[in-house]
């Protein structure tokens, strides 16, 4: 009797300790985002304040993002800024949507081919893609920039150019998807083939319906990627802020030049961050289950 009770007590003690740890972890992890949210509503000027909760709450930062204005340090007036947030947001959203569709197709198709179909160049191809992935991405940028320029896809047509570049090499991200396909038993394939299906029908009618988690995982990944691309987007826009995407624009907002010209540059950055994060966060929460299934299924056997 005595032993059992102490064991339970030990377990309760451990659990309590774990709850404490988890709470601390949650606070540390969430703190910067709460800070971000608070700062996006801050009305006082300046980059940072010594206190956490803003003394003046205002929606102005959000409004100014869309009207392209900002509070200048020089005379405290609301002046036009170079921030064209709606334009950047729209462009990035469009790019993300198109890239999602095309990239998902390409990744699924490549993963299936490498996973299920057997052909002579399969292993060498996988090794090749592994190797190619190790070259630093931006070294290719100059070459790609000139290639796109040749095709007339910079500056004015940079949306198309960016999309092409993003999807062009997307087949190298087959790893997790292929791992997932590997876990689908081959017997299903064989049964279908016995029934007379050709390989294409096997892919579309048998495998894909079973792959909902990985499809959603691929869609989520493809959607999230273009939002964060700073280097290539800034190169292809070549200084013209009409062709920036959200990442470039937001980075410019916290450069010293902007921070010292506008008193609310940091707050507007926070507001922009909130706006950018919301759709992705919402999508993520809705599809979280599939995302996890996708990762674990795909990572299980590589």
């Amino acid at each position: 009797m005595k032993r059992l009770r102490s064991k339970k007590a030990v377990e309760r003690g451990t659990n309590a300790a774990i709850y404490v740890i988890l709470t601390v972890i949650s606070i540390i992890w969430l703190f910067p985002f709460v800070y971000l949210l608070m700062q996006s509503f801050r009305g006082e000027p300046g980059q940072a304040t010594a206190y956490f909760f803003p003394k003046q709450w205002t929606f102005d930062n959000y409004i100014h993002l869309f009207t392209g204005e900002g509070i200048s340090y020089k005379d405290g007036l609301v002046k036009a800024t170079e921030v064209k947030f709606p334009l950047w947001y729209g462009r990035t959203l469009l790019i993300a949507l198109v890239v999602t569709v095309i990239q998902t197709l390409i990744v699924l198709v490549t993963s299936y081919a490498l996973s299920r179909l057997r052909f002579k160049m399969r292993k060498p191809l996988m090794n090749l893609m592994l190797i190619l992935g190790m070259f630093p991405g931006f070294m290719s940028m100059t070459a790609l920039y000139f290639l796109l320029k040749l095709l007339g896809l910079t500056q004015d047509m940079s949306t198309v150019g960016l999309i092409l570049v993003y999807v062009g090499s997307s087949c190298m991200g087959y790893y997790i998807c292929k791992g997932f396909f590997d876990t689908i038993p081959k017997s299903l394939d064989e049964a279908a083939r016995i029934d007379g299906a050709n390989r294409q029908q096997v892919f579309f009618k048998v495998i894909l319906p079973l792959s909902k988690p990985i499809i959603i995982y691929t869609i989520l990944n493809a959607f999230m990627a273009p939002w964060g691309d700073y280097m290539f987007a800034s190169l292809i826009a070549f200084g013209n802020s009409n062709y920036w995407n959200v990442a470039v624009g937001m980075r410019e907002m916290i450069q010293p030049a902007a921070l010292s010209t506008y008193a609310d540059s940091f707050q507007r950055f926070c507001a922009a961050a909130v706006i950018v994060s919301i759709p992705i966060t919402v999508l993520f929460f809705l599809l979280q289950r599939y995302y996890v299934e996708g990762i674990t299924g795909g990572s299980v056997k590589g």
Partner: peptide, 29 residues
């Protein structure tokens, strides 16, 4: 192409993209 050689159909576009957007810049580099 949709059966025994399906891999060719499937991989044509991805590999073309790979060629132009990855291999060409690397060789250039």
């Amino acid at each position: 192409l949709v059966d025994a050689q399906y891999h060719k159909t499937l991989l044509a576009v991805p590999l073309a993209g790979l060629m132009v957007f990855t291999i060409f810049p690397i060789i250039f580099m």
